[in-house]
């Protein structure tokens, strides 16, 4: 199945590992993930590394998960508004639903996502965790 393919994930390492998006050379709009055509119509972009800090717009705690996440379940996922502008979907690490609030400040942290059985590849990527200032 596609989710076990290391190649499909490998292709996205720059985004997944380093938050590399792009920025329109015409109107300076920042995109993550990268876009090929800006809303302003421009097709010229420059790579832009996002800072990895932002705030939680909304979140959930997944209790019934897809198969490959079963060992990690439950886990929190949220939509994060990054300080640089774009909004992204990300897991919220080291947290359960009771300790999160809409508006909490978060920062990126490199974590393991899934491992395909005992013999398959381990998928890594960036998650977010509550920034120190948000922890009571």
């Amino acid at each position: 199945m596609h989710r076990q393919s290391p190649i499909l994930r490998w292709r996205r390492y720059p985004e997944r590992y380093r938050l590399e998006g792009n920025k329109c050379l015409e109107c300076s709009q920042i995109y993550f993930p990268k876009k090929e055509l800006c809303e302003c119509g421009c097709k010229s972009f420059v790579n832009y590394k996002l800072k990895g800090e932002g705030k939680i717009l909304t979140f959930t705690e997944i209790k019934s998960s897809p198969e490959e996440f079963s060992e990690m379940t439950p886990y929190c996922v949220g939509i994060i508004e990054l300080e640089d502008g774009p909004k992204i979907t990300a897991q919220i690490a080291d947290a359960d639903v009771t300790c999160l609030k809409v508006g909490d400040k978060v920062e990126s942290t490199f974590r393991k996502f899934t491992a395909v059985g005992d013999s398959g590849v381990i998928h890594y990527g960036l998650k977010f965790k509550k920034a120190k200032s948000s922890i009571n």
Binding site: R3, R9, T58, T60, I62, M72, T89, Q91
Partner: peptide, 17 residues
């Protein structure tokens, strides 16, 4: 999908918002 979301998870985030 990569982040482990399910459709219920997506609508749960909408619900919370």
């Amino acid at each position: 999908g990569f982040n482990g979301l399910t459709f219920c998870g997506l609508y749960a985030m909408i619900a919370r918002a």
